[in-house]
């Protein structure tokens, strides 16, 4: 039986009069790798900060390991490894001092693991944080976090600004962590290829609202792209646009490229009767599905179209 590690209930945050997160309710089961996706400013970081009690929710609540986020006991906080966005750490510290600081404040400290990760990222114990490259700093933060042997790893955009090599090392570490069966990883990212590799489940935020929370495969399966070919060029798109689950459709010559979500047999049946001469199903990768899902809704998708039209 899998139990729930993170649970949020109608979690909402306003900054002044601006809404940053609206009514987020979701669950993260134990032992899973959970990708938290969404465009910039969609409220991912805000949600994570509220989860950890770093920010007061405007309303709603969140629990981690069954404890209210606002009153996490020390030992529970000790079980959560958190890497904030941008991998900040004390710039004046040397790597070994950072380790000393971390080990002095956490009950668990896996020194071998710490040194192994540092070595993997090519960081010497006497390197100062301010002299480290971005990737190295991320590596240091990762080493500091992993060495405390957390049961829950919360990573806020860990791959941000990392080169492919560092990113790969990062993914390897995440896979390594799942070796411990009960360890859960909750991470936000923009990199769909990473998500595809490591995530079991994803949640997608769009304009501060949770739009999807499901398995990676489910997400991919539910989004479909269909190309309708017409004989006669003036296409009556109104009938197509009114279909349920229509994300957007693009005119290309005598073709209509439709992106549909949650399409079922009924929709397929309806598509057969819109007057298209042929119907082609286009398989979608996760990244394309994601783009289609969060792209502009409606009849056009590329904002360059406007540029093209005016020239």
């Amino acid at each position: 039986m899998t139990d729930t590690v993170i649970q949020t209930d109608r979690l909402t945050k306003y900054f002044g009069s601006k809404c940053a997160l609206l009514e987020l309710s979701m669950q993260v089961p134990r032992g899973c790798v959970f990708g938290f996706l969404g465009r910039n400013g969609s409220g991912k970081t805000t949600a994570i900060r509220m989860l950890l009690g770093l920010l007061d929710p405007t309303r709603g609540s969140a629990t981690i390991f069954g404890h209210d986020s606002q009153q996490l006991p020390d030992n529970v906080r000790g079980k959560i490894g958190y890497m904030p966005e941008g991998h900040p750490f004390y710039r004046w510290m040397k790597a070994k001092e950072a380790g000393r600081f971390q080990s002095g404040t956490y009950p668990k400290w896996n020194k071998d693991l710490f040194e192994a990760v540092l070595e993997h990222f090519g960081i010497g114990p006497d390197d100062k944080v301010k002299n480290l490259s971005r990737g190295m700093r991320a590596g240091l933060c990762l080493a500091l976090t992993l060495a405390t042997e957390p049961e829950l790893l919360i990573l806020d955009d860990p791959a941000l600004g990392l080169d492919p090599v560092a990113r790969h090392a990062f993914l390897e570490s995440m896979i390594y962590v799942t070796r411990e069966k009960r360890c859960t990883i909750f991470f936000s990212s923009h990199l769909l290829s990473d998500v595809e590799r490591v995530a079991d489940r994803i949640a997608v935020l769009d304009h501060n609202v949770l739009k999807a929370c499901c398995c990676v495969e489910t997400f991919r399966k539910q989004i479909r792209q269909v190309i309708l070919r017409y004989e006669d060029v003036p296409i009556d798109s109104a009938r197509v646009m009114s279909m349920p689950g229509m994300l957007h459709c693009v005119h290309i010559g005598n073709e209509l490229k439709l992106t549909l979500v949650n399409a079922n047999g009924e929709v397929d049946e309806a598509l057969n009767h819109v007057g298209a001469s042929s119907i082609e199903q286009v398989p979608l990768g996760l990244e394309e599905a994601f783009l289609a899902y969060l792209g502009d809704k409606g009849e056009r998708t590329s904002f360059f179209d406007k540029v093209g039209a005016s020239q």
Binding site: C32, V33, E172, I175, Y176, V198, D200
Partner: peptide, 13 residues
């Protein structure tokens, strides 16, 4: 499963 997951850097699941 674990060996392959770590070799390919993908989720063991």
């Amino acid at each position: 499963v674990r060996t392959l997951a770590e070799r390919l850097v993908i989720n063991p699941n």
